[in-house]
């Protein structure tokens, strides 16, 4: 048991990821307000991106911009650039999908005058 706790303390990024991921999921499941659900979705998405980027950090490494005076390059000196390139794309797509879902909520509100999931379903029948 003590070993397990020690292993968690070595990985604070993973503890934060689990907390944010499950809390966001919980908000999406429990709340009936549609905008609140999207806040939960946003926290869930950013937690996954945070998890990926945290893998790229190296002890004592700097940003992945190559200094001109340091050829040939030693890869240990720079942070891992691959997760960065992946997540830059993912963040933009995340906000684009968030915009579409907020537009859907806005359209539903204009028609049914409510942000509550149950009221919208009731009036849609």
């Amino acid at each position: 048991m003590l070993d397990l706790v020690h292993e968690w303390l070595l990985r604070p990024n993973f503890i934060v990821f689990v907390t944010l991921f499950l809390w966001g999921l919980y908000i999406m499941v429990v709340h009936t307000n549609l905008v609140k659900k999207l806040i939960g979705l946003y926290i869930l998405q950013t937690s996954v991106i945070f998890f990926l980027v945290a893998f790229s950090s190296k002890e004592g490494a700097t940003v992945p911009v190559i200094r001109p005076d340091s050829m040939p390059v030693d890869a240990v000196e720079y942070a891992n650039p691959l997760p960065h390139a992946l997540t830059v794309t993912a963040i933009v797509v995340q906000v684009a999908t968030l915009g579409v879902s907020l537009a859907l909520v806005s359209a539903a509100y204009r028609k049914y005058r409510s942000l509550d999931e149950n009221e919208v379903l009731q009036r849609a029948e």
Binding site: I49, V53, S56, S57, Y78, A79, H84
Partner: peptide
């Protein structure tokens, strides 16, 4: 953690 591009975005 060194991910400046991601931080900007």
């Amino acid at each position: 953690v060194g991910a400046v591009d991601v931080a900007f975005v």
